[in-house]
């Protein structure tokens, strides 16, 4: 069996002594997807940031691409982070840079990404075309709507074609139509590049779209997929603890009051 891309071993992350996630363990293998569900403040974002080494665990160990990053120094992490892309909750675009400069940032600043300077513009245009925002190159993030900023964030996360892509609440605060468009883009990115994808969300529908649809390159649209839980698992967090890991069917069959309430609510 292939080596896990991400492995958490009894990980606890705390702020001022208060655990944000506690004793969390899971693994993600190449090509798989994970949907992490949980209420606000349940530790979803903390899991993503700990995966990239942006937060350090108090206890337990974190492995990324087989490397123990638990006590790794910041500069040692850069090569591993270059193999990952992350969409932050509000996009986290650099507001002093144009959209072109934002999307070009990982190409120009990640040492292990070998992109000749003359190819940068073409790669940026391609990434923005993928999210249907090729016309925004010279604009600044403040000139775009929330949904457009999220799409630019997706382009920036994927421009280096990373093996692992993390999405932090990509649909939070968006209207249902825009939210579905964003999810369609995430499914498209996942299926076109076969990237390992982790998405944290409060919306059960986001997980359903990830599970029930796939991108068809011929028709260039999403179509229903017969996945039967293969390669996609749901994780549910409750107050920092992992209370469920399984397929969508198992999730919906769960009799746990928190999980069923969570699922039913959506």
């Amino acid at each position: 069996m292939a080596e896990a891309i991400v492995r958490f071993e009894s990980v606890t992350v705390a702020f001022d002594g208060v655990p944000a996630i506690e004793d969390v363990s899971f693994e993600i293998f190449p090509g798989e997807s994970r949907v992490i569900l949980g209420a606000a403040g349940s530790g979803k974002t903390v899991i993503l940031k700990t995966t990239l080494g942006l937060l350090r665990p108090e206890r337990g160990r974190v492995f990324l691409f087989g490397h123990d990053i638990t006590r790794m120094k910041e500069h040692e992490l850069f090569d591993l982070r270059a193999r990952c892309g992350m969409l932050f909750q509000e996009g986290a675009l650099f507001d002093s840079l144009t959209i072109e400069e934002n999307v070009a940032y990982p190409l120009l600043n990640q040492k292990s990404v070998s992109c000749p300077p003359e190819e940068v513009r073409a790669r940026v245009e391609e990434a923005l075309r993928f999210v249907e925002l090729a016309h925004t190159l010279d604009k600044y993030p403040s000139e775009l709507s929330g949904g457009m900023r999220r799409r630019v964030g997706i382009a920036r996360a994927n421009v280096t074609e990373p093996s692992l892509v993390l999405y932090d609440s990509p649909t939070a605060g968006l209207d249902p139509i825009t939210a579905n468009n964003i999810m369609a883009l995430i499914v498209k990115e996942r299926d076109v590049r076969r990237a390992t994808t982790v998405i944290v969300t409060q919306r059960f529908q986001d997980g359903l779209i990830m599970d029930k649809y796939r991108y068809n390159p011929q028709t260039q649209s999403l179509e229903p997929a017969q996945r039967d839980g293969e390669g996609l698992k749901f994780l549910v967090l409750k107050q920092g603890r992992l209370v469920f890991e399984g397929s969508q069917q198992e999730l919906q069959r769960s009799t746990d009051p928190y999980i069923s309430k969570f699922v039913m609510r959506h």
Binding site: L54, M86, L93, D95, Q110
Partner: peptide, 17 residues
């Protein structure tokens, strides 16, 4: 402002100290 909008984290995630 960069810190609260996660731009500092994004910078670190994108390979910049």
């Amino acid at each position: 402002s960069m810190k609260v909008t996660e731009q500092i984290d994004a910078m670190r995630a994108l390979g910049t100290d």
